[in-house]
Design a protein around this nucleic acid. Sequence first.
DNA 1: CTTAAAAAAGGACATTTGTCCCAACAATAA
DNA 2: TTATTGTTGGGACAAATGTCCTTTTTTAAG
Lengths: 190, 190
Amino acid sequence: MIRTNPELMAYAEKLFSKGDWDLHEESFGSKERIMEQDHRYGKVYLIREGIAKCFISDENGKEFIQEFLGEGMEFGELEVFSNKLTICAVESITPLKAFSFTHGCFSQLLENDTRFNQLVMKALADKIRYKAPRHSYQHAYPIEDNIIRLKKLFPEFTEVISKKDIANYIGITTRSLNRALKELKEKVDR
Amino acid sequence: MIRTNPELMAYAEKLFSKGDWDLHEESFGSKERIMEQDHRYGKVYLIREGIAKCFISDENGKEFIQEFLGEGMEFGELEVFSNKLTICAVESITPLKAFSFTHGCFSQLLENDTRFNQLVMKALADKIRYKAPRHSYQHAYPIEDNIIRLKKLFPEFTEVISKKDIANYIGITTRSLNRALKELKEKVDR
DNA sequence: CTTAAAAAAGGACATTTGTCCCAACAATAA
DNA sequence: TTATTGTTGGGACAAATGTCCTTTTTTAAG
């Protein structure tokens, strides 16, 4: 549920400590908006510590959470490859520390550092791999099954992430989430 | 709705005609299964002509269509980056012509051909960009709106793609699709 | 042309999920 | 402390969607 990428994380640490790249560290408090949807930025971020959410919101203000980003996850990288606006907003859930690459620096690394190139490529591939079954599962199974699945994957999810965010992640209303949670509990008690 | 990638297409043509890479062309009839889910293959395909569907199916046999692949779209590439099993099955809808790269050839191209590397990276990024709003939209809006949207994007979609596939793409049953289509028609007639 | 098989359309009913509320209980600021 | 706002939990009803089945239409096969 909260995605991570230790390999990329480790490599970024190494690049940072070497210091020959234009790599910075930035800090954010919790609930800070780091990127807006449909905007243009010149930076790519890589989370060093903390959790953020990446979401799309529609004109009615409904949020649909794409991913919860943990250590080693990047965002803002898609806009390096195609010169378009952001599709997601990103907001910190906990306080955050992140590396920031300028687009220029990121491109240069991609071009000159084979290992970096591979890791970024793999990170993109993983994002695709991860999304596919998730959405199909959410459509095909009742809410309850989805929650059971989340609990297995990430037992303490209710402690870190708000109900609203969980609902927006599954793509349902909080009302439906509560109903499902209640029915689940009743089943366990019996 | 049916995705394409002209840039990558053009570049693959060029590579093919030069002939110094181990690149082959393969042909398939319609409704042929080209890749199974949860399997391992040693090839990456790039569609030269025709349309295919890429889908996940669950234990009950329900299909959820990820993408309709048109000219210039690749599949089987994710498995080059992480050594895992396929997540999707791929089946031709129309007769198909496709380039096939061995994993080895694909990797070498990635490493030695900067332009190819960029194009593949961009193709991955586009797959991510494309998926995000699609799923959020499908959740947030009633079926009717989704169909109207599809019609605008791709007016002739009912002629090429079966109702069943369209339903599986939107993530609904054929019954619901028919209901929505009927109501739409009635609205237009009035 | 005839028959079988597949795809499309839709009726009737059950179930799920959403909408619109309101109440209880924090956490926070004044 | 007292408002105030936000989060959580849930009741009652409405709307959307799915399930199951039957009928019609289209396509393919003999």
